[in-house]
Computed example of a mutant assay.
Amino acid sequence: MIQETIVSTQNKNGIVHIAPMGIHISADEFIILPFKPSTTLDNLLETNVAVLNYCTDVRVFAGCLTGRRDWPVKDAERIDGKVLSCALAHTEVKVLRIEDDELRPKLYCQAVHTVNHAPFTGFNRAQYAVLEAAILVSRLHMLPIEKLDAELTYLQIGIDKTAGAHEFEAWGWLMTVVDNYKATLNL
């Protein structure tokens, strides 16, 4: 199973990095697969800990992909790490072992501590649409334009029907990135 989370890491100097990431869950292990090169990977190799943040504010997902990474954080409880202030829950993890790979190493982690801060009341269709669009934006260079356009056209339906202010804002950030990408291709 893959859960879409926001992974927060920090380096030895305490500089926090926040990145959206699909975390693989297998039995009681969390598998983080950051791309090479990446700040998330560097920080994990340096500190061996991370926080998996579960939140419904999709602006964080879209923001991280559009240059908006300055989200409020607070101290983790059991590791030297940071938790997103908007997280409904979080899991603090430590790296147990690493399976190296040329593109995406697998970092097998174990939960050290899990906390629920607020109830999860579900996603609306617009939140789902922003999450899916964020994944598409993270892969712009890998997707044919026709597929991108078709997916975004479908996702727009959820935005139009169920979005609130946060979802409209996040969607707008992502669509600006898509429009700028298309402009570089002269489309």
Rank of each mutant, 00 (worst) to 15 (best):
G63V: 08
W71P: 00
C109W: 13
H113F: 13
R68G: 04
S138R: 11
A133S: 09
V49R: 05
I135H: 12
L65T: 00
I79M: 01
R59K: 14
I79F: 06
L148H: 12
L44E: 15
V51C: 02
V95I: 11
C55M: 10
Y54D: 02
L107R: 08
L103T: 12
E102G: 04
C55K: 02
T91M: 02
T66N: 05
C109D: 11
V130I: 03
D75L: 06
A62R: 00
V95L: 07
T66R: 05
L84D: 09
S85P: 01
E46S: 14
L136H: 06
Q110T: 13
C109T: 13
N124A: 01
I145H: 13
A134D: 08
V137Q: 05
A134M: 02
E132L: 05
L136R: 03
L44I: 11
E77Y: 04
N53S: 02
K106E: 12
A50L: 11
N116F: 07
L45G: 02
D80C: 07
Y108R: 07
K82P: 14
V51Y: 00
E77F: 05
R78G: 01
A62H: 05
D100I: 14
E132W: 03
H117W: 06
N124H: 10
R97T: 09
D75F: 04
A126C: 00
V73I: 10
V130R: 00
E102I: 15
E146D: 15
E77M: 05
K106L: 15
V60G: 10
R97S: 15
R104H: 15
V115T: 07
A133M: 08
I135W: 14
N124R: 14
R69T: 12
A50Y: 00
E132F: 00
L131S: 00
N48R: 14
L107F: 12
Y128Q: 12
Y128V: 13
L140H: 07
G122M: 04
K74H: 14
M142T: 07
D42Q: 09
F123D: 03
N48K: 15
N116Y: 11
L136T: 09
D101K: 11
R69D: 10
